[in-house]
Design a protein around this nucleic acid. Sequence first.
RNA 1: GGUCGGUUGGCCGAGCGGUUAGGCAAAGGUCUGCAAAACCUUCUACGGCGGUUCGAACCCGCCACCGACCUCCA
Length: 503
Amino acid sequence: MSYRPLYVFNTLSGEKELFTPIVEGRVGMYVCGPTVYSDVHLGNCRTFVSFDMIYRYLLHLGYKVRYVRNITDVGHLVGDTDTGAEDKIGRIARLERIEPMEVVQKYSNGFHEVMALLNALNPSIEPSATGHIIEQIEMVQKIIDNGFAYETNGSVYFDTLKYAEQTGQYGKLSGRVIDELINESRDNLKNQGEKRHPSDFALWIKADESHLMRWPSKWSVGFPGWHLECSAMSTKYLGTTFDIHGGGQDLKFPHHENEIAQNHGACLSNPVKYWLHGNMLLMNGKKMSKSDGNSILPMELISGNNDIFKEAFSPMTLRFFMMQSHYRSTLDITYDALKAAEKGFSKIKDAYNLIPRLKKAPGSQPVKINQTILSEIEGMYEDMGNDFNTPKALARIFELVSIVNIYHNNPQQEEGLNEESIRLLSSAFDTFVSDVMGIRLKDDILTDGENYTEGLMDIILELRAKARENKDWPTSDLIRDKLSEMNIQVKDGKDGVTWSTGK
RNA sequence: GGUCGGUUGGCCGAGCGGUUAGGCAAAGGUCUGCAAAACCUUCUACGGCGGUUCGAACCCGCCACCGACCUCCA
């Protein structure tokens, strides 16, 4: 079996590379998931939506994909140091007087709800850090056995200097130089007496009595360091070397750099063939970030219940908005940009709904327009194969939108459309917009008791048509205006009336 | 301070040596009872200064500004 060529930008090499899986026909992909100590904000979601699109495209190409996206539910500490600080989840549990696992469950549920709203597919495996304590402890032991970690006072640290000396690799992913890391002079790197070098990081952290989440180990009763869970779980489910590792840009350093070090330390091999990083969602020109207060929750945007944007935006508008920019570019969210996305998306939906109504020429004579449609489809494969260029593919979709509208307005145009034209148009929208980009094209109002609504609308529009025949403009306008208030738009065309929902 | 990345028209956002990106907004027109939608046409670009080249938004240099990372980050 052959696959369409796919080029991906590999952060490790800094170049676009032809994607070739380690095992033919199969792809192992790991994406860093959320830390579930609070609600995921829209910026977090952008990364997950980006990798959902990547997952979808790999599936579409015919690969059998094992997509692992973890839940981090232990090890993330409040503040800047990785010793002695409080666990983020433990902190919430203490403040709210609930079990840490209640915190984890609550925000995991919320995360899943948001992912479902944004039409993200579920990963093949969604492992959690607390569910893999044994694997993490084993990995720490392997790293110690291989001489890349040391114990101090019950905590275990990764020896970055030794790793760098032996492999010359530390900092390769993020472009760091080990000397600079060691000579790092930021004030908050001080007071880390247990480490041999400031750049060393914790694999296992000894916990005091007040710490809610702790497990026994040969070194101490404690908990695993932040980066360890991803190394342990990716190794467990995808093997010591797998195809794709994804995550947000902001995880490159230290998280992913340390992951590589840990995997190497434990398995003595490079874990990942292609590192893919999504760029940040900006708001007010700055990275969306919860700790800076510069963030918005998906539900706040979907419900319109927020102070930042003037109105509600549907989940699919958000997804379309995200797909209109490249995953490796920053994307600035503004009211105007969302409004533009809403209109543009609505244009695609309207055209999609018109496809089945297009007039076809009888017979199966080949028509010229099909060549155009086909070349746009081929173009979209090229765009997607070029590091997932969704904005460019969407530009081609808008070309198809124009074709649909032109032929809908003027069915007599040239040689017209045939069965094949309709099939190609439908499949272009279904494949690229729905399947690959994950943007649902069918209005919710239609999927929800579709026939019922359609039937009612037929009656209403028939009454309006009668009124118009009688030149009863007040009645016909009343119907149109009332429907408009309900966000249903009536569109008078040459060949009859169509309608669509506004959002 | 170090290391990266960016600066495209009113807004968003592709392109990265020669070809209209696209969407939204705006203007005019077609259609329409009116409107909307759609269609046609039009408009406003590549941060600044140099250099390379027959040709630069795209390559190189300098400058300016913005952002990200530098142990909370998707």
